[in-house]
């Protein structure tokens, strides 16, 4: 070093070798920095793609298509006797009103199949709305007013652009005729898109346009509450114990490692703990209800139960129903009567 330093006028920091090395190191530095930035950017890009994908696929569920029809609240359909009896109004055939209105709008549609397609333009829920209208205001009977009704799921999908109109008819869920009707409705300004309030107020349904998350939300809410009630006090008390009271010994260590481990146990293993726990849970009522007996998971009345199975306890220890042969099981006593069959009948 000293030799070189003297050669370069006494300054080692300016030697050619050193400068070359420095450039290299600075480049390596920049490269490293860039790699780090790149890693973060890819992670954020993935996040952005995820959010975009979810939002772009999901946002249309928050709006729904409505069809406005001129509904004639015909007295002959709703209240043929003219009594205005609430029971009569409640049980009347409001679907018929919708169908009549659609027939009027498209008088040239005939044939069972075509009519069924025509009627499916409007959700099967439409009659409930009409019934509520009439119940709230029986004066409506005999009048004809435009009513905005929830569209059927296929109409909704076409309107939101999820069904390709250019597809060959055979490959398309919605046929040419329906598209033509839709175009007529569209041209008359009878189709509207509105916020999907049913999504938040309905339970699950087989009809997509009626399906909502209310039931699921209630379930999630209760699960949340119960989890909180269990986890919060126990967790806080454990923390206080471990931090403030516990001596540093093997037991404390064990508890601490164990808690950390519980947090990392796959959730599905906890799920299996719940399943297996049902072996203690089978109540006599469940059995008599023709309900699933916990882990046995098959209805008692199918006669499939094998008394020699691995779950003798779920039969034996709960309510004293002895392990019957399958045939006896098939004719299990009624609800609330879970005395041993052999002694009662």
């Amino acid at each position: 070093m000293t030799d070189q330093a003297q050669k370069n006028g006494g300054n080692a920091w300016q030697s050619e070798k050193f400068l070359k090395n420095l450039t290299k190191r600075k480049r390596a530095e920049r490269r490293f920095r860039l790699t780090g930035l790149l890693a973060i950017i890819t992670a954020l890009t993935l996040l952005a793609i995820l959010l975009f994908s979810i939002v772009s696929k999901g946002y249309t569920a928050f709006v729904q298509t409505f069809v406005t029809l001129d509904i004639t609240f015909a007295e002959s359909v709703i209240d043929p006797n003219g009594t205005r009896d609430p029971v009569e109004l409640r049980t009347a055939n409001y679907t018929k009103l919708v169908q009549n209105s659609l027939r009027e709008k498209f008088p040239d549609v005939t044939g069972r199949r075509d009519l069924r397609r025509l009627f499916s333009l409007v959700s099967g829920d439409a009659d409930i709305k009409l019934r509520e209208m009439v119940e709230n205001d029986p004066e409506l009977i005999g009048k004809t007013i435009p009513v905005s009704l929830l569209a059927g799921d296929d109409v909704d999908m076409v309107n939101k652009g999820y069904i390709d109109r250019n597809l060959v008819e055979d490959d398309r869920r919605v046929k040419d005729k329906e598209l033509a009707w839709l175009d007529v409705l569209e041209a008359d300004g009878d189709i509207a898109i509105r916020f999907n309030t049913g999504f938040f107020t309905n339970g699950d349904s087989r009809e997509p346009e009626k399906a909502g998350i209310a039931g699921a939300m209630v379930g999630s809410f209760y699960t949340l509450i119960i989890t909180m009630v269990i986890a919060f006090p126990i967790g806080v008390m454990t923390a206080i114990y471990l931090e403030e009271f516990a001596a540093k010994n093997k037991l404390t260590d064990l508890i601490e490692v164990n808690i950390n481990n519980l947090a990392a146990v796959p959730s599905i293993v906890f799920g299996l703990l719940g399943t297996a726990g049902r072996r203690f849970d089978a109540r006599p009522d469940d059995i008599a209800d023709n309900y699933h007996c916990g882990p046995c998971r098959h209805p008692r009345r199918t006669g499939q139960h094998s008394p020699s199975g691995p779950w003798p306890r779920c039969v034996k220890s709960t309510g004293g129903v002895p392990p019957y042969p399958a045939a006896v099981h098939a004719g299990h006593p009624d609800r609330n009567d879970y005395r041993p069959v052999a002694s009662t009948r």
């Binding site: 008390m237 508890i255 519980l262 299996l272």
Partner: peptide, 20 residues
């Protein structure tokens, strides 16, 4: 009470192992 609360975690683990 505090000790019992912290032992619940161990019981959970034992429960998992036994049931499985």
């Amino acid at each position: 009470i505090l000790i019992l609360a912290s032992i619940i975690s161990i019981l959970t683990t034992v429960g998992i192992v036994l049931s499985l």
